[in-house]
Amino acid sequence: MDVVINGEHRKVSSGTLLDLLNELELDPRAVVVEHNRKIVRRTGLGGVTVQEGDAIELVHFVGGG
């Protein structure tokens, strides 16, 4: 399935956002997920199914001023 993650087209297996993070080897506690412009809370990640063409942003804190 084709989705856009952090602005890049990627092929991922079907499943929930939590499955997606597992597939990408990301710790759900260490990233914030924005799914089609809507923030999905950590506890809700397993309840949202990823659809073809979804825009997903995965962000975290980096050094900044």
Partner: peptide, 10 residues
């Protein structure tokens, strides 16, 4: 301490 929000490097 301030921090910035940025995309995770996949």
């Amino acid at each position: 301490v301030t921090v910035a929000v940025r995309r995770v490097n996949l």
